[in-house]
Design a protein around this nucleic acid. Structure first.
Lengths: 332, 332
DNA sequence: TTGTAAGCGTTATCAA
DNA sequence: TTGATAACGCTTACAA
């Protein structure tokens, strides 16, 4: 069943049927109704491949996620999808598992014209490769600073966000603050470490390299990291982590060791996901405006889809430190 | 840059270039090398839309998830992707948010020939509609029983799984066992309730309707449900839930109320995700073999893609009750 | 081993 | 307002 069949049944031409399908006003009401009825009765659905080939457009965007184990992405995806749907775009999601080869495979959907644009989170590819891609195809980054002339991106100010968290810990009396960062060496991680260092320096607290640890996005690695940290000669009294799940792992180890969070040990996670809220005791966390980041990502990609030479933009949104039971209160 | 350009540059025909691209042996080594060099130099990538239109195939499967907030799906997706990649298929994921309209929109990717098949989890559409779809297009279900002549599916035996969990709770001495089920009225939920009832009946424990509660996949609803249950005149001494996240919410409320899990109250969740393991104290859970379910889903869809009239199959895999700190031990 | 040409299902141009 | 037809980029009979 194709457009030709419909044309035959409606006793008209394929051109007219196409016009009806695409709401072209240059069709008489009678013809339109006749065609629509046939379409209704036959359950005909236009073949998008044919359409895409002809129009050189797909109205689909691809969202590349490193993993779907982090619920933070759920928020962002929702933002992307809503804005995309409003603009008549379908959202397709692929998981790279942080494997550069898988990532390249999915990025071929761009170059082989099966999606109009890509929104990517923490790529595993070199900045240069991405920038070259972005020069030719609509490609934007979400949640992390991108380096390249052609890559529009939106994220929070990660330096400031980490700085705020560490400053809070210092203000409530901590001097021995450890940082469990991500281990992927992406921009957002580097910036969070900068914020960490900055806050300590501002308060003349020497930086102890044994307090700077790294681990995968994974509760059990957070658990292990915390174990290592707490068995140091001078164990930290507060831990800041780059993910809520890592914070939960660290918290679990601390609790098992008989420590009381918000008393013996303070913990602050990152992302502001349900994990931090759900944990018992609830965990403080630096919250990212995921939904908004997603929506803006779509706007950025849409601009590049309309015109690949449009201005490359950076949109920075505010983060928010949410204090819960895992950190002691500020006494005024 | 298209196949014609390459043919011109390589001083040969498009047919030959096409043969080179598709590894057709009927090309001389010299021609092949010449063409490959041009392709390399120009960075040419075949346009998949043209290819798909011609071959009437896409080598893409769509995985429809109700949400990505449940980490159980991460395991399943991994299984699907690995098997798919091995068979040269790309995996595309879309989130329905349990909205039938969104689901129908994505299912149009099937009828409009943009994907070769769909693997769906807990659809929000009527069984009949799905079965009719599955008669025409490759459509399989994962993780839940499907009703329909044409829908192959793979899942665990949900009756048995729930029965096993409840039987354990009875064996360690419980008589007042509540069940926080999902609220979507899907097959797996109905079956788990059957398993729950069966275990109680076998032990001549009367079923109290106030112990049968329902909530969304959401920790805070689990929290609220637990609150309601524990404020009953005769509060349950054990709670079984249909999701780990709901179990965590229930556990959180219990802990906040000063109850000790595995002592004052036992909790068993479902799915066997990291959430259950990560929680403090760790939560017992009925684990599903997610990775395997994913792999089998792909095999099932692949069979239907090869031949839509191939036999409709059911593949049932075993589940496993994993006991952790949230349940008391069996004293022998 | 190579090339010509038809055709996949659309949309868009042009003429009527 | 309508219709005939070229074109999108590719694969594949069929012919050479």
């Amino acid at each position: 069943m194709n457009i030709k069949d419909i044309a035959t049944l409606a006793e008209t031409s394929v051109a007219t049927v196409s016009r009806v399908i695409n709401n072209d006003p240059r069709v008489s009401i009678e013809t339109r109704d006749r065609v629509l009825e046939i379409i209704q009765n036959t359950g005909y659905i236009p073949n998008n491949t044919g359409r895409n080939l002809r129009t050189q457009k797909t109205n689909k965007i691809l969202v590349l996620l490193p993993t779907i184990k982090n619920p933070y992405y759920a928020k962002v995806l929702e933002g992307v999808e809503h804005r995309a749907a409003y603009n008549d775009f379908d959202t397709i999601v692929s998981i790279t598992h942080r494997d550069p080869e898988i990532e390249r495979k999915y990025l071929k959907l761009l170059s082989s014209k099966q999606v109009d644009g890509v929104i990517s989170f923490t790529s595993a590819l070199p900045d240069k490769e991405l920038d070259e891609l972005a020069a030719k195809f609509p490609y934007v980054q979400c949640g992390s600073h991108a380096y390249g002339e052609n890559i529009s991106f939106t994220c929070i100010d990660n330096i400031k966000a980490a700085h705020e968290a560490i400053s809070y810990l210092i203000r409530v009396g901590h001097k021995n603050i450890a940082f469990i960062n991500g281990q992927f060496n992406r921009a957002y991680e580097i910036e969070r470490e900068k914020g960490y260092r900055l806050a300590l320096e501002e308060n003349s607290i020497p930086i102890r390299t044994e307090y700077l640890t790294f681990c995968d996005y994974n509760y059990s690695e957070g658990y292990d990291c915390c174990k290592t940290l707490l068995s140091l000669k001078k164990p930290p009294t507060a831990i800041f982590t780059s993910y809520d799940q890592t914070a939960a792992g660290a918290a679990k180890y601390a609790l098992e060791s008989g420590l009381k969070l918000g008393q013996d040990l303070d913990i602050i996670g990152f992302d502001g996901t349900f994990i931090a809220e759900m944990f018992h005791p609830s965990l403080s966390s630096v919250s990212q405006p995921g939904y908004e980041l997603g929506g803006i990502s779509f706007e950025l990609i849409n601009e590049k889809i309309k015109d690949i030479h449009s201005l490359t933009k950076q949109v920075i949104l505010p983060s928010k430190l949410i204090l819960r039971e895992s950190t002691r209160k500020l006494t005024t």
